[in-house]
Design a protein around this nucleic acid. Structure first.
Lengths: 333, 333
DNA sequence: CAGGTCTACGTAACCGGTTACATGGTTCGG
DNA sequence: CCGAACCATGTAACCGGTTACGTAGACCTG
């Protein structure tokens, strides 16, 4: 019992397919009687239009593709949630796709979106501009999120330097002497920018202190490991600037396990302000994740709709430092 | 500069579209020369196959639709993450769609999936079986998640009663005298099941205590409000069994604000075990969210693939109570 | 009442792929 | 040397919608 098609409906109502289509799409100039006959036939057959076929002939899918490296942690969840929020009222759907680190597979993932979506949101902080530009299907409106600016594509980015600088400045202002940085993965644009920003900020705010940086990978365990490394090496530090919140959580845990008081002995800051940070009282550079998601969709929809082509200067989001108890604010939670 | 089509490629390589198609799909019986010519043309034109057109003729979209009430909080995020995990290696995509509470809109959301996906995962704890059955497109393989069992559809459900019972039993075993329940929204199957289970468990474990229940809606604020209500009413309680984790978090916060010690004066339990619970030390009924997501996909893919029709008995997931410090376990985090 | 408009509807081409079937050319066994 | 079997390829129908275009009849208008 395959589903009924528009031709089945036409036959049942004894009209042409064109008329059925007109009724379905509420076109003008259809006689009320006809409308009624068709509606009855649709009802009787339980007909539901085939979105795929419709997409093909209209060249519009009402779907937008979201390609991201991984769906792990609150970071991505929040962004996707923001997208979802913006996409639903506009009558679009979200098509999720994971892009692996491997450039070839990434290209593959991007290609399979052709003909499936009306536009693309790409989050690829781990790809180089070249690899990305080579992989992006031509003629498909695209908005890049936290990705190396490629060509003249529309994009939304976080001002990594501003976030790190604010954290370091805050630590200096509250009397810390020796901050260290737990960095993100080497190939990641954001991670690199934050690392560089840390070095620069240290020069400005702690000109006499050595710049100590431990490698990480944005996951919680890396935060744990980094603190273990620091302690094992006997490094002197009284503040940790983690490249993201998850690693900061790991660091908090490790510090607690090691018996170091936070914030009395060590201040900790993160980056992103995922929801969890509020609960754990983590000082962090707030990135409006949900908002970024919605905004990316809005940008993309604007690109898609009429002949719009303008406003392709990338939005830059300036994170605001939220001071919580992990860096010495009075106990509030 | 519209994208090239398969006919453009055929023309450029001076072969027929059938041959191009054969090369694209690695069919046997194509001469190496031909293969090479076609590959060259594809390369030259930057041709990328149109997935939509392919779907139409193959009647397979390689996408599966996920319809859920809302994308809020870790609960859904985790489940979606699990789905994503399972779907990617199988070469499928996830198409997200939000279903509003309104039954008509819900039906609408389900209908628009026709022709867009090969199967559906529906999470609709807030719909009645009738409304749902009426809205589900016929002939589309469907797996229901935490939804009233409708017809003979495949489904995966959490044993709400077991989870609540375990929590209540635990409270009894650790010497609590007067637990109260913060319930979920009225129309929600899970919420209702948990509420009923609480009443039943109270009868068994606290036969002499009154059954106190405060209404909530699964959101954090409801937990806050519920505690405020209890305190304002002067209700006597030394344990709170929240219908989900988010409300438990709200309760924890409100208790702290009111100066009541957790767990010394009041024990708190949740339901779901979202990641946050581990961080906040909440005792809760663990539901393998990521796993549920993957499993739902696996079930669905099994339904889709050959002529498989069997195994439609709904999986029942028995939550395991994870005891953490909110209910009196020794401080561990 | 002839000719022009307008309305309501049907016919058929088209969107971009896949594939059943047909066809011309080789190879091979008898 | 002939027909069968096989191989590589082309032709055209099909998937399920949309819509440009054509047309028959109703309605005006002078």
């Amino acid at each position: 019992m395959a589903s009924a098609t528009i031709r089945d409906v036409a036959r049942a109502a004894d009209v042409s397919v064109a008329s059925v289509s007109r009724v379905l799409n509420n076109h003008a100039n259809v006689h009320p009687d006809m409308r009624e006959r068709v509606r009855a036939a649709i009802e009787a057959l339980g007909y539901v239009p085939h979105a795929g076929a419709r997409s093909l002939s209209l060249a519009r899918t009402q779907a937008i593709g979201v390609v991201l490296p991984d769906l792990h942690g609150e970071f991505f969840s929040e962004i996707v949630r923001g997208m979802d929020r913006a996409v639903t009222p506009a009558g679009y759907h979200l098509l999720l796709s994971n892009m692996h680190a491997d450039a070839d597979l990434a290209a593959q993932a991007l290609r399979t979106m052709r003909g499936r979506v009306d536009g693309l949101i790409v989050m690829a902080p781990h790809l180089t501009a070249d690899a990305l530009e080579a992989a992006l299907p031509r003629g498909l409106p695209t908005v890049m999120l936290n990705t190396v600016p490629s060509g003249d594509r529309a994009g939304i980015r976080v001002d990594n330097a501003a976030g790190i600088r604010a954290a370091v400045a805050h630590l200096a202002a509250t009397g810390r002497r020796a901050p260290v940085h737990i960095a993100g993965p080497a190939g990641n644009v954001d991670a690199v920018a934050r690392r560089d920003a840390f070095t620069a900020a240290m020069r400005d705010y702690f000109p006499d202190a050595p710049v100590e940086i431990v490698d990480g990978d944005f996951f919680e365990e890396a935060g744990l490991a980094a603190v273990a490394t620091l302690i094992a090496a006997g490094t002197n530090f009284d503040a940790i600037v983690a490249a993201n919140d998850m690693m900061a959580f790991g660091a908090l845990q490790a510090l607690r396990d090691a018996g170091r008081q936070v914030p009395a002995q060590v201040a900790v800051t993160g980056f992103d302000d995922v929801p969890l940070s509020r609960y754990l009282g983590l000082t962090t550079a707030h990135v409006p994740l949900v908002d970024m998601g919605s905004r990316a969709i809005d940008r993309l929809l604007a690109l898609i709709s009429p002949g719009a082509k303008g406003a392709r200067d990338p939005d830059l989001i300036i994170p605001e430092l939220i001071v919580r108890r992990s860096s010495g604010a009075p106990e509030t939670f």
